[in-house]
Design a protein around this nucleic acid. Structure first.
Lengths: 247, 247
DNA sequence: ACGATCCGTTCGCTAATACTGGACACGTTT
DNA sequence: AAACGTGTCCAGTATTAGCGAACGGATCGT
């Protein structure tokens, strides 16, 4: 239990995390799972319900949709996300694939905006993936300074998500360097088997703010389409976002 | 400050709500706004950051995208929402308008699933609207017992959001009755000027669980399309959802 | 139909802590 | 260079978070 200055808040969050896992639970079940007294859990649940973060339904509790509200507001509160929405939509439309804006947070790549182009794979908004195993993640990482990259590798390691994940620090550094030069990153099944993606970094005055990506199945992401067509579209829209951001 | 059993959690939520309003703020600004000491706010912010609910950027704080993650998980954790996603997509596709699943929570209508059919109006996921002024809201309300309806009217009143909002209790009760009979609700600019919608309740074994709706501009929502075509599609998909839910 | 058993909730109690006010360190500004 | 502004840290105390036991209501098995 590393230093949480406000312990009660940490406890409430633990309750939230438990509800995240089990979807729905009673007081007793949560108390056992969290190793807390029933009354403590009850107090937290009542508080969470009062603020809309939990809902009770005849003794059983689940998470409230207020999280959706806050999450969407948090996202829309960021200039980059608001600006990127139209471009993500356009990219999804033109490619007929899933397009997304990814933003780095706590050393992870977070899907902040997504649009499924009809037949595209679904990507859960808000989901996190490691920076080293996905095209947008690498695009973001590539424009960081070498020392930051080293630190990232050191603290997080390079976990193998699939057989194709880059797990060698040297190989990753090399790849990041070429990504930085071209302004384009690829992922060929490195995070999920059979899922490929193309991404371009979005740069603002204070460094790289995120990445624009197209994600799709290996069957459709190959050959000239993967090497030229998709990269061209991604680059165009990434540029548009950068332009819209600067003014 | 009505009874919040865990006061510290309430305080953290107040910090979150403040950040929701101002998007980005420093410790001092938040302390003034919340009438708390700087150190207290600082402690809450550090705790919130540790759990991913806030991010600091050189002294300034904003909400973390973890809210998006939790919110999406909370939503997908509900059978109704998961089942409805495909139908909402299909409805948006067929109508080329914004389609949405609305779920009641804390006496409000919450947009839980949404799909913009290309040219549809955007609806913010997680946003709340009063039950009495929107088609899906009325659809949900209509299948409640008369006593529940009376209680709702008594506690919330019938605020006029536009000139067309139904503000008379008698008129609302009458309308709800016909909505209950037909299984269809309409909204002609009652919540937002120029915005109309058609909705059908989704009924499960334990009452009405939500409503399926199509939302669009008055120019396209009129005549036979509003009266027959859209209602037909909404009813069909609402039925499909009920079916998928029951097994 | 009726105990037995489970659950959510309530109620004191006490050790732990959330908040205050003040001091510190750092960056920018005047 | 000094005067402000900021975010962060520190000690003290009134507050309270969490515990354990008891209550009342529902559900189960018999």
């Amino acid at each position: 239990m590393t230093d949480y200055p406000v312990r009660a808040t940490r406890t409430s969050v633990r309750v939230i995390e438990a509800l995240l896992e089990v979807r729905e639970a009673g007081v007793t079940e949560l108390a056992e799972r969290l190793d807390l007294s029933k009354s403590a859990v009850h107090n937290h649940l009542v508080t969470l319900e009062r603020v809309g973060f939990a809902v009770s339904d005849g003794g059983r509790y689940r998470l409230g949709l207020r999280f959706l509200d806050v999450g969407m507001n948090a996202r829309n509160g960021r200039d980059l996300c608001r600006v990127a929405m139209a471009e993500v939509d356009a990219l999804a439309d033109q490619t007929d694939e899933m397009a997304a804006l990814v933003v780095p947070e706590f050393d992870h790549a977070v899907y902040a905006v997504a649009a499924s182009g009809g037949r595209g794979l679904p990507v859960r908004l808000g989901s996190r993936v490691p920076l080293h195993a996905t095209a947008p993640g690498k695009a973001v990482l590539a424009s960081a300074s070498p020392s930051v990259i080293d630190e990232y590798i050191e603290t997080h390691g390079l976990a193998a998500l699939t057989r194709r994940t880059t797990t060698s620090a040297a190989a990753l550094r090399e790849e990041l360097s070429t990504i930085g030069d071209r302004g384009l990153a690829f992922d060929r099944g490195e995070a999920f088997d059979g899922v490929r993606s193309v991404a371009a970094p979005i740069r603002s005055q204070e460094g790289t703010a995120g990445a624009l990506a197209v994600v799709g199945p290996g069957e459709r992401f190959s050959g000239k389409r993967l090497e030229e067509d998709l990269p061209g579209l991604v680059l165009t829209h990434a540029n548009d976002i950068e332009l819209a951001l600067s003014e």
